[in-house]
């Protein structure tokens, strides 16, 4: 049961505070940045992710680590190279947990911050797919790379489930220094098709 008395009281207290209207927001910050494949590759590598700029995806995929790799719906047929057991949905939590890795595309990438964004669309699948396997290979097309955070947000649909990924799983909790490898994939490999 929703407590409408609490709702009404909180809203009444807010109105009673009578906070004056604020100044209009001045967006004087940069909307764009230099962008580009090179900057994106450099920034991804700064997080100690593995980065390759490739011209041919299937060729690059022959050096995949691991034998049992998850491939979400919508992964192009030519990415499903020989020598790998490709795991396709429906997959249980246990099956995902035991997979060696996952191969996906992405929705958008951000050059400025070295970030890839997944939105559950084509070649990405539901969020658990890129979370449980310890190794994530993500293919990014050059035209998917936005220069800046503002540009990337404009390209995204906010009501889809979104995951922004900047490097492998890490923590700053021990003496405030970054250490890679906690719960998420400990190896992130980004293939940029340039």
């Amino acid at each position: 049961m929703i407590n409408t008395a609490a709702r009404e009281e909180i809203l009444a207290r807010i109105r009673h505070a009578n906070v004056p209207a604020a100044e209009p927001v001045v967006r004087g910050y940069l909307q764009q940045g230099p962008g580009g494949v090179e900057l994106f590759a450099e920034r991804v590598a700064d997080y100690r992710a593995v980065v390759h700029v490739v011209s041919n995806v299937p060729e690059a995929l022959t050096s995949l680590q691991g034998k049992r790799i998850v491939a979400p719906a919508g992964v192009p047929a030519e990415w499903l190279v020989d020598g790998v057991t490709w795991l396709r949905e429906p997959l249980s939590i246990e099956e995902l947990d035991q997979a060696d890795g996952v191969l996906t595309g992405c929705a958008v990438a951000i050059a400025d911050t070295g970030t890839i964004v997944l939105d559950g669309g084509e070649a990405q699948g539901r969020r658990a797919l890129t979370l449980l396997p310890d190794y994530h290979v993500c293919v990014v097309r050059a035209d998917q790379i936005a220069a800046s955070v503002p540009e990337a947000l404009q390209r995204l649909e906010p009501t889809r489930p979104l995951t922004f990924i900047s490097g492998p799983s890490a923590t700053s909790d021990i003496e405030l220094n970054r250490v890679e490898g906690v719960h998420g994939p400990r190896t992130l490999e980004v293939l940029i098709v340039g």
Binding site: Y47, T159, T163, F164, S166, G167, S169, A170, G184
Partner: peptide
């Protein structure tokens, strides 16, 4: 950091 490793965004139930 330029960006933290993971940011999750969700809207209601998918």
């Amino acid at each position: 950091e330029r960006m933290n490793p993971y940011t999750s965004v969700w809207t209601g139930v998918t």
